[in-house]
Design a protein around this nucleic acid. Structure first.
Length: 803
DNA sequence: AGCACGCCGACT
DNA sequence: GTCGGCGTGCTC
């Protein structure tokens, strides 16, 4: 047989090894091996795992440069051609290693498990044999189980070749199996056995008769014993007589689990029907068609998703449905499950590695047609995709905050284009980028302007906190809000209070006029640095002293701004001693599932007030909530981020949607020091279009997205001076090599400049065309990897946050 | 990442 | 003289 070579990406995440290596495929593996399978290969003097990304009949390398691969770990590929080519695209796009992307796409259970063993091969002291090797010649080695001194001893023995290290590559994926029996196909033998049975052997007679009716079939032991009253002994007897053979088969999911009430499609209104028609007809055309489905809260976007999904499923295709966070959208998941039942897989963060792998296997085997999940579910191994839905497309959770920094929304669009299918980006408050693309006709824009059941949008009151604080002690509650809370408590209706605590950067604000010091170059709020007693701009590095007097109105009450839910809860208890309050923030919801419990409790009306951070703004739907209070709408505005207005508008719109979703009409109170800020005014008027146009002007004026691409280069170093110095060199090098139209900002310390004893700096690039900087950034990535010292540099395309 | 090669200081 | 420190370079 002709020689074959495998192109393999090895499990060694470094710059120098970020390329396919060529291995000889041993002859006996040639007809088994396929691209997308995991293998083990010799790499240097150890054995590592790798992914086959291609198979070739020729190679430029000579025989003596090649080695054969060791084993194939999979029976069928874990990655299909589509996902393999997606990994190439993503590696380029995110400046990540191929291997990191491949591992991100797969469940953890498929990662290699490297087991180290140490073996005595020469002379060692009795102490070592007895104490370290427990009298054995070879033991499993876990570095953390030894003292530094013992480790030094072992290292020395190793150099003397008295002991050897062996690394075993194990597959963590263990398919859950169940005991089953495969019936013999030898009818003659079975017949003979049947004749010669003792007349008293009733059980055996029954079994053999059953086998004869189902020759060659495989039955789970459990199921067989439900059908027939055969004991384990009878089966054992049958095995020794070869009527059947024992077999382990992959455990199938329990068909009785999670029985959900089946729900039927609802009637669509005209707008919904129109959206449905547009999307489903483009699905029929078998063409890539991105849609922006822009619908106000409560306008029934979900029903459109579900009916288009139904349409696509009927054609025998599969559906991928992304949500920002499973935990925050339980009713969305419930609706999908109740509509599509058992053909649904839900990938949520609460799954263990094993459970996640089981779900992944179900998808991969084709047992499910629709997958619902958060960010990482975008890599679900569905083939034959017919539709992708990205709900709340503006959410920043779609962007992974550490390497590889991919955006699931963009991955969804890539997959949509690959399969030539519709992709629905849904939102009440689309990201500026998406809305602008719809403007230019890149996405088709569909709008839903009516609330289901004719419900009205809530009335929003904006309260100027400057008035509240002008004559009185520091408080989190305006008189208006206090009155309304008291009123609802009387009526036994429920209240949601949101404390905006996005990020933990702090800034300075004047209590009398609401003035926030902004940096003169970027016009962004400056961040307070108590260590240096300065205000800094985290885009360009501009620095100035903390003002003691407000530059705007001369007031002395200009100071640090920020508060926590705990403090608010205390004040709430003083104001309304009888009210039952549930507090929801990072502290009270840290434990898995505790958030669900708190929400359920609130849903059962076991509390009057739900007090929380922005986590309570999303998708929650409680009919008895008639008042929503936003205690401090400004904090997001104060963030050193050009997304600040957008985030504030989105948050206020979202949280307003929580009030009065049923028959009872709702009211919203927004407390702010900037009642005239456009993000707040437009949110008050429920005017997304107005906000969009004004914000686009602001972005245009500041050369921000979507007019400019943005890249953030961040680096950290254990030495502050080195961090600053090296980043300064990077910035200088960039400025020297980019063309005139590329804007290089920084370096400047990150808002949280020091973390875990490392100092963080960032440089921001703004540019009009991708090809202006792509190659430069790749070079930078390479150089930084090879550079000495412990500078850690990472590149983030279109960052969603500058924290 | 690991592992070897290789070139300079303090020790049996 | 050697042992061993970690800088440098390579792994199909």
């Amino acid at each position: 047989m002709k020689k074959q070579y495998a192109q393999i990406i090895v499990d060694v995440p470094t710059m120098q090894t970020d390329q396919p290596y060529t291995y000889v495929i041993p002859e006996e593996m040639i007809d088994q091996i396929l691209p997308g399978m995991r293998v083990t290969v010799p790499f240097g003097r150890r054995e590592v795992m790798g992914y086959v990304v291609g198979i070739r009949a020729t190679t430029d390398l000579s025989e003596d440069q090649l080695r054969p691969l060791t084993t194939i770990l999979d029976l069928s590929p874990v990655l299909n051609t589509e996902l393999l080519s997606l990994s190439d695209y993503l590696a380029d796009e995110t400046f990540a290693f191929r291997i990191s992307i491949l591992q991100t796409m797969l469940p953890n259970a498929l990662k290699a498990d490297y087991q180290h063993f140490i073996k005595i091969v020469g002379k060692v002291s009795d102490d070592v044999v007895n104490r370290l090797f427990m009298g054995l010649t070879e033991i499993a080695f876990h570095a953390n189980q030894y003292s530094d001194k013992d480790l030094a001893t072992l290292a020395k023995l190793r150099r003397q070749h008295s002991i050897e290290v062996r690394i075993e590559v194990n597959d963590r994926a263990k398919v859950k199996t169940q005991l089953a029996y495969q019936f013999s196909q030898n009818v003659a033998m079975l017949k003979t056995a049947q004749q010669s049975l003792r007349p008293t052997a009733k059980k055996q007679a029954q079994l053999i008769a059953f086998i004869l009716q189902h020759v060659g079939e495989t039955w789970l032991k459990k199921e067989l014993q439900e059908m027939l009253p055969v004991s384990d002994e009878t089966l054992a007897h049958a095995v020794t007589h070869e009527w059947l053979v024992k077999k382990q088969v992959e455990a199938l999911r329990d068909p009785f689990k999670a029985m959900v009430q089946k729900s039927d499609p609802l009637d669509l209104n005209d707008e919904q029907q129109q959206a449905f028609d547009r999307i489903s007809s483009s699905a029929d055309l078998h063409r890539f068609a991105p849609f922006l489905l822009e619908g106000i809260t409560g306008s029934g976007k979900t029903e459109v998703y579900l009916q288009v999904a139904q349409h696509v499923l009927k054609q025998g295709k599969t559906v991928l449905f992304l949500v920002p966070e499973i935990a925050l959208t339980p009713q969305m998941v419930r609706r999908v499950k109740s509509r599509f039942g058992e053909q649904t897989a839900v990938l949520h963060s609460g799954l263990s590695d094993g459970e996640r792998y089981d779900e992944w296997r179900r998808i991969e085997r084709g047992d499910v047609q629709i997958v619902v999940g958060a960010r990482s579910a975008v890599f679900a191994p569905l083939d034959n995709l017919g539709l992708i839905i990205v709900d709340e497309e503006h959410e920043t959770t779609y962007k992974q905050s550490d390497n590889p920094r991919y955006n699931a929304r963009d991955v969804a669009l890539w997959r949509g284009e690959y399969y030539q299918i519709p992709v629905i980006l849904g939102s009440a408050t689309p990201s500026l980028e998406t809305r602008a693309r719809a403007q230019r006709g890149v996405y088709e824009r569909l709008t839903l302007t009516q609330r289901a059941g004719g419900a009205k949008l809530p009335k929003v009151d904006v309260i100027d906190m400057k008035d509240t604080l002008a004559d009185g002690p520091e408080t989190n509650f305006s008189a208006e809000l206090k009155d309304k809370i008291a009123d609802r408590l009387n009526k036994k209706e429920q209240i949601v209070l949101m404390l905006n605590r996005r990020g933990f950067s702090s800034f300075v604000m004047c209590r009398d006029c609401g003035f926030v010091p902004r940096d003169p170059n970027c016009n962004l709020a400056m961040t307070l640095h108590m260590d240096s007693h300065t205000l800094k701009c985290h885009y360009c590095g501009h620095e100035e002293p903390i003002p003691t007097v407000c530059p705007n109105c001369g007031s002395k009450r200009i100071r640090y701004y920020g508060t926590g839910t705990e403090k608010v809860a205390v004040e709430l208890a003083e104001l309304f001693p009888t009210a039952r309050v549930i507090r929801m923030d990072q502290d009270t919801t840290r434990k898995k599932g505790s958030m669900d419990k708190l929400l359920e409790k609130f849903g059962r009306h076991e509390a009057d007030i739900l007090l929380g951070t922005q986590m309570i703004a999303k998708g929650l739907d409680f009919p008895d909530v008639t008042l929503v209070g936003v205690l401090n709408a400004d904090t997001a505005l104060g963030l050193p981020d050009f997304h600040a207005s957008e985030r504030t508008f989105q948050l206020l719109t979202q949280v307003s949607g929580r009030a009065g979703r049923a028959q009872k009409s709702g009211e919203v109170v927004v407390q702010t020091f900037n009642p005239q800020h456009y993000a707040i005014v437009f949110a008050q008027q429920h005017d997304y279009e107005g906000f969009y146009h004004q914000e686009m002007r602001a972005r245009h004026a500041g050369n921000y997205s979507p007019y400019y691409y943005t890249v953030q280069i961040q680096a950290s170093h254990s030495d502050e001076n080195q961090a600053a110095l090296q980043m300064l060199q990077v910035a200088r090098w960039l400025r020297a090599h980019v063309n005139q139209e590329v804007i290089v900002l920084g370096p400047s310390p990150k808002p949280i400049a020091k973390m875990r004893n490392r100092y963080y700096f960032q440089i921001i690039l703004k540019f009009k065309q991708r090809d202006m900087v792509d190659n430069l950034l790749k070079t930078l990535q390479n150089r930084s990897q090879n550079a000495k010292g412990d500078l850690r540099l990472s590149i983030d395309r279109e960052p969603v946050s500058f924290m």
